[in-house]
């Protein structure tokens, strides 16, 4: 078979809804895009453990503490599932970690923002996990078998992440004026970064057409972003929390909540490494890796002699 024939056969398989498994023929670009996407996704989960992990020691009740540890542990587990899916494509975890620590690999920019108060933990669960669920539901239909299966597992575990966040915010808005103000302040800081999570406008997104054709991405950035806004605005309204967008208004004709323009300058700055916590996050990951070297070596040495 020529490469053209192979490609046609491959695209026909995807068209039929078949899953591509490790070892199947795939265009080099498919493999490259998947490795990029999946490893980025994995790095996001791992880096995402940091802003919330730091608040475990200060969680203000036993229930909150238990739930937060469980959530952060899940994030580690999700990173683990995703690294596995990427490894099936021929990249090693050593390579992926090296790419993250050197700054070559990207991860979701949302985790470059600081968690400034306890309320941030609630709003992160509400907004960031709420957004992640929409993304994950789409990716669970991915044409690449290991990625789809990882996403199905992640999706099943993720919904409590969103709900525990909303539960925290509910306690705050039904509490004292200080607590309510804390919640509103967190909302004001996390709303726009969450909308940025969905990436650039479709028109500015160079990777999208290939990803759509090959069944990796089946919904566009703007579509998902709109769905997130539609699902979240009514929740905020019920909780009497305002969203920091004076242009937010309901469009009767489309049933969509129309919203203002994202500050793309900020988006590209943070993506480019100049966000509030980019350096801190990578430093923490590098430090954990370096401090852990003697442990990894010792465990390997023991196994080598056994």
């Amino acid at each position: 078979m020529t490469d053209d024939e192979r490609l046609a056969h491959f695209e026909a398989r995807i068209g039929r809804g078949e899953k591509i498994e490790p070892g199947d023929w795939m265009p080099p670009e498919y493999r490259r895009q998947l490795i990029r996407m999946i490893s980025q996704h994995a790095h996001s989960e791992i880096v995402g453990m940091l802003p919330e992990g730091g608040w475990i020691t200060m969680a203000p009740s036993l229930r909150r503490k238990l739930v937060l540890v469980a959530k952060v542990q899940d994030e580690g587990g999700h990173g683990q599932y995703l690294y596995h899916a990427a490894e099936t494509l021929g990249i090693s975890r050593e390579e992926m970690i090296e790419a993250l620590h050197s700054g070559k690999a990207k991860y979701s920019s949302i985790f470059n923002y600081p968690a400034r108060s306890w309320a941030d933990i609630g709003v992160i669960g509400w907004f960031v996990d709420g957004a992640a669920i929409l993304n994950q539901t789409m990716l669970a239909r991915s044409s690449y078998g290991p990625y789809a299966r990882a996403m199905v597992r992640i999706s099943a575990e993720e919904s409590f992440h969103n709900k525990q966040g909303i539960e925290i915010v509910l306690a705050l808005i039904e509490g004292t004026p200080t607590q309510r103000a804390m919640a509103q302040d967190a909302v004001n800081r996390w709303w726009w970064p969450t909308l940025m999570m969905f990436g650039p406008h479709d028109s500015e997104s160079p990777n999208t057409p290939a990803l759509v054709r090959w069944g990796i991405k089946t919904r566009s950035n703007d579509e998902l972003r709109q769905e997130f806004v539609n699902q979240t605005v009514p929740q905020a309204e019920a909780m009497r929390l305002s969203l920091p967008d004076p242009d937010l208004r309901f469009d009767e004709s489309t049933g969509n909540w129309r919203f203002g323009e994202i500050d793309w300058g900020e988006f590209w700055r943070v993506v480019g490494g100049d966000g509030p916590c980019n350096r801190e996050r990578l430093q923490a990951r590098r430090a954990a890796h370096e401090d852990g070297l003697w442990v990894r070596e010792a465990m390997a040495a023991y196994a080598a002699r056994a």
Partner: peptide, 19 residues
Amino acid sequence: RLRRDPLPIASLQNRGKKR
């Protein structure tokens, strides 16, 4: 429940807080 029995506070206006 919140939609049925709204909180007894005025909702905060938040104009111009866009970053």
